[in-house]
Write a protein that binds this DNA or RNA. Structure first.
Lengths: 342, 342
DNA sequence: AATTATTTGTGCGTATGTATC
DNA sequence: AGATACATACGCACAAATAAT
């Protein structure tokens, strides 16, 4: 159809900006030059430039010239931080979220919370959703961090968009420069195992989660401590479970794996509670020191997870990165306690 | 600083559109009229109108006139639902949030969670924040619902913007047409009290929260049940506390108020746990059936709060309203149980 | 440090075309 | 058919900011 001159000229210049003929800086010819080049009147040229300006493609500076803008020059702060954890309402997660929220609200941010249920398909759905949402930053508890993660591409997109990502509990080794807040799981495994050795145990079983990096690290601490105390690491005494098969697997294999053991290091209190109900005599050291550790008719030791702190640190870290103050990671320590600290 | 005429005029007209001086339809004076009114040139006026057009505040129709657009003619779905509760990581709230989240994510929504800590000043800050955020709906646990609420104006603004608000647990009587999901607190009070009466108690104390409507309702059920069983309602046996003074008040007054009583109805398990530790002999019926009810060295009965369900219903309700399917409220029932149901 | 040329910003005027009532 | 109002297009003039001399 017929198009007017100024729209034609506008589209003309826009194309040249997009394909790079006009890059950044002055590049744009002056109004009078364009008048000569096009043969149009200055008013018409100005109208075309006005359109470019409203499309935020160029900026005019009186007395100087018209300059091509960077594409997406400045992201406006939305004061929203997205939080992606495996679970929301259970176990240690309320405390983590509470820690995150307290720091975020203190600094005027609002949290957008989603749960992956430790499934990468959910993680993908949530992340691609969030890419379209107005957020300044992202706090993520990695999903199945011990396995190759198919969503690394999405995490990189956040980085491209300048949205900082802070990981808690676990993170993917494939990431370029991850910032994280985690508990020292390897050290935790050492403490747990050492506690049992000091009590005189030598037949110490282990139950670990295979799909989360925390499981690997706790196992590493456990195995190393056994070795350095000249106790053999017996594969038959170690059970590996995953998010999906925990309960059925424990029911089927725990009996034989623990038959010869006098003690066991459990990945967390959910497992430990189950074990404490299945075996009366066995001594347990577990992780997280949740209410389960006290609830059990057969109480067990459990390392205190600095859960609230993890949340607080993570939130503070996102805010710091946004303020260009800090890009370091933090490793928090477990504490052995027999008291109720929930 | 100095501003150019056309920007000044633009802002001038924009204000008049926003505050309603210029409503819908033609209302905008013609270009020539504006020229006469302002004393500016027609080109300047046109530039101002051009800005208005780019801001999508007006539409120009050739040969007809300039028309004011409807304010926010079509709100785009953001797929965000804000959730405002008193607390996040404690007590029954994780379960409520979990229920909310499961329904929201199932339907493709993301939740933005904030906590008021049952303070109206925090509530105000959060609500005015949320007014500027891209949300489709709002789930709120009212703050101090038994007291006159100073933030009703903000709730009305959400209504004006077509953002549905669903209340959980408690809501403000001042609201025009509240939609809510609550537990039947009055009935709960009846059940609690009846349970104690059936066990032969006649000297039944009560501890209630005065700043939340749930406290009033539970008290109403308690009082009515006493009366209908010909037991006097003795004011000296009833303690009212608030968010702020709970612990100190119980420590100071519980002793004398419960001295003559053989049983007590407690507002919730947090109170009940405290009482169960202060008094060995007294029989307790409480609300929420949290882990506290079992943790206590002195276990007590507690009505089961349908917390997960409250969250699920509330989330579904917001979604239904957005789909124009449902605008009714829901009242859920308490169940008396002595088993562990957390 | 002052001057000048360049470039954009603002304003005035005119004319033709076209859609709506 | 005519009045009205907007769209497009052009010409000219001066102001104000900037950059170069």
């Amino acid at each position: 159809m017929k198009e007017c001159k100024y729209i034609e000229l506008f589209e003309n210049i826009r194309e040249k900006i997009i394909d790079g003929t006009y890059a950044e800086k002055q590049k744009l010819p002056s109004e009078n030059e364009l008048v000569k080049a096009t043969g149009y009147s200055r008013q018409t040229v100005r109208q075309a430039i006005s359109l470019l300006e409203h499309s935020e493609l160029v900026s005019r500076v009186q007395g100087s010239g018209t300059y091509v803008n960077k594409i997406a020059p400045k992201r406006e702060a939305t004061m929203n931080i997205a939080v992606v954890t495996t679970y929301i309402g259970e176990y240690i997660f309320p405390a983590i979220l509470s820690g995150i929220d307290s720091v975020l609200t203190e600094n005027g941010y609002t949290s957008m919370i989603s749960a992956t249920k430790n499934r990468v398909d959910n993680e993908r759905k949530i992340l691609s959703d969030l890419l379209g949402k107005p957020i300044d930053g992202l706090i993520v508890e990695g999903t199945k961090t011990a396995l190759p993660n198919p969503n690394i591409d999405l995490y990189e997109k956040f980085a491209e968009q300048g949205i900082p990502v802070v990981f808690i509990n676990g993170y993917y080794p494939d990431l370029k420069k991850p910032v994280f807040v985690v508990a020292d799981d390897r050290k935790g495994g050492e403490i747990a195992c050492k506690t049992l050795i000091e009590k005189g145990h030598t037949k110490i079983a282990g139950i670990f989660k295979s799909d989360d990096i925390q499981g690997h690290r706790r196992y590493a601490g456990y195995a190393q401590t056994l070795r350095s105390n000249n106790v053999e690491v017996n594969d038959d005494r170690v059970i590996w479970y995953t998010t999906e098969n925990r309960d059925s697997l424990l029911e089927r294999y725990a009996e034989e794996a623990l038959a010869e053991s006098t003690a066991v290091v459990c990945y967390n209190d959910e497992v430990a509670l189950k074990i404490s109900r299945m075996f009366e005599g066995i001594e347990i050291v577990s992780f997280d020191n949740s209410t389960y550790a006290q609830l059990s008719a057969n109480p067990f030791l459990s390392l205190s997870n600095p859960k609230e702190k993890i949340g607080e640190y993570a939130a503070q870290k996102v805010i710091n990165i946004l303020r260009r103050k800090d890009e370091t990671s933090t490793v928090l320590q477990w504490e052995m306690t027999s008291e109720f600290t929930d």
